[in-house]
Design a protein around this nucleic acid. Sequence first.
DNA 1: ACGAACTTTCAATAGTTTCTGAAAGTACGA
DNA 2: TCGTACTTTCAGAAACTATTGAAAGTTCGT
Lengths: 181, 181
Amino acid sequence: MSDSASIRHDFVQFWGSLGSYWGIPPATARVYAWLISQPQACNADAIVEGLEMSRGAVSMAARELRDWGLVHVERSPGSRQVVYRPETDLELAIRNIVEMRKRREWDPLLARLRGWIGELDGQRSAEAEVFRERLRSIEALVGMADAMAESFLKGGLVQKLGLKVLVASAQRRRGKKEGKR
Amino acid sequence: MSDSASIRHDFVQFWGSLGSYWGIPPATARVYAWLISQPQACNADAIVEGLEMSRGAVSMAARELRDWGLVHVERSPGSRQVVYRPETDLELAIRNIVEMRKRREWDPLLARLRGWIGELDGQRSAEAEVFRERLRSIEALVGMADAMAESFLKGGLVQKLGLKVLVASAQRRRGKKEGKR
DNA sequence: ACGAACTTTCAATAGTTTCTGAAAGTACGA
DNA sequence: TCGTACTTTCAGAAACTATTGAAAGTTCGT
């Protein structure tokens, strides 16, 4: 027990359940977890067997993962079969996810907020004024989040920021570990 | 048209649809948006009428929002009626959300990752080794995200980081606006 | 250009989440 | 303590989302 097969199973299960927090269908998240847990790229059959899901579901999940840049679909030279290779550079993967979410969520939200604020600027009622000020404070915050995301996408953030923060957390963690030994 | 009522309607609708990206039920998100759009705190009846939803749904949404720290439930002194006041300090609201998600998602994920890595440390197969290294890189990244979240929760992040980033984005935005005038 | 080997699509089904509304619960004033 | 004016709960209905599997579409070797 607790061999790598059972750990893989737990990992796949847990990762799948996490997916729902992030708006990723569980089956899709499970496929990604499975691929990460395998040393080499897998073909569709291996996934069908390993995860006990239908061929169609595997194909759907793989397509979605490809859209997110989380797996690469590869075709061996003299074969009709495709194999799925997970993106293991997680920073790259996260960059893809952040970019997609920014485009889908923040950008339209910011655009609409600014539009609404502009319209409310033309109104004199006290009601409109309160509403406008609240929208403004949302805009400021979303704008900041957006700017942070953009900065992350340009590649600087993890290095610039992450480092300082990481040092602190690594120290904290090292402290714990050494206490145990 | 395009008076504050119609803007409110659009805002409520859009905010509700955004909710789904964040795992917040649409009705819950709509109630919050509605409250933000009103100058004073509302009672349940006003929400039932304004959003055309059932009394029960309003109560459920309000309870969830209260759990997230996004609304405050207040009872006027000589009255049985409660009014719902939205938290308008968005930074505080976001802090609450981040804290809750961290506890629900990152903390258990990190704990399990570390457990699995520990178990895989005891195994010699090449397969286990690849898997373990991948889990390690996930752990490093999640650990960093976790540390950033923690730093944000301690109150420093927005000031320390946000400022630099904000300056850049404000300059960019100001540039655009002045171009228009 | 054809047929085999494989992948992708999509209509139907299964499953899950969200919403409703009536019933139960709670807090206040008298 | 009782009745009233409200809120909360929860079982079931409705709406939505995910999954299956058979049919359609692709791609490659010959």
